[in-house]
Amino acid sequence: MFVMILFYAFSAVLIAAALAVITTRNPVYSALCLVLAFFTSAAIWLLIEVEFLALVLVLVYVGAVMVLFLFVVMMLDVEVEQARGGFTRYAWLGWLTALVVILELVGVYASHRFGADAGAVPAPTPEGYSNTHELGTLLYTDYVYAFELAAVLLLVAIVAAIALTMRKRAGLKVQDIAKQVAVRREDRVRLVKMDAEKRG
């Protein structure tokens, strides 16, 4: 019963947040509402005992993707009013797309394969069962080959990015950290003894 109340509460917040994402005029508010939507989705996932996915959703989407998104929104001077210029002209296309999506959702929900009663209700996991542990076991045994290769893939991305962007041009001003650290007071400050002068 308590779980049901939590579910409906989080769902209400999720829907409100999702609506706010597309209705607020300020892109920063929009992005922040999306963060709220991600948080509440993570909470709903916790209710069905997939704690690892819930954590990853918060860490990856809120922690990394949305922060990047906010950076972009704040750094670029987005002309919101201009972007909304053709809104009424293309509104019919939006409605049409929404209608198709709704029909598809109804179709999926009504079909015997994917409906609410299609599969058995998953049994609650036993005490002490750790989602993270099970995923880790699978990742480092059965799929260790793919896991290691994915690591190499990330390395390739780093090498490629550095090779393509790091350039050594003549006259480039670079900081030499070692020199900065090793600097002493005598190198920078010169005390000059001067006699006091009379104003005149």
């Binding site: 080959y145 793919a146 290769l149 893939l153 390739v156 991305a157 090498v159 490629a160 090779a163 393509l164």
Partner: peptide
Amino acid sequence: GNLLSLYIGVELLGLSLYAMVAFDR
């Protein structure tokens, strides 16, 4: 031997080639 390793192979090869094509900056 698996669709997973197949896909990672495609990406490894692809990413390396994209970067090589752009190598002359």
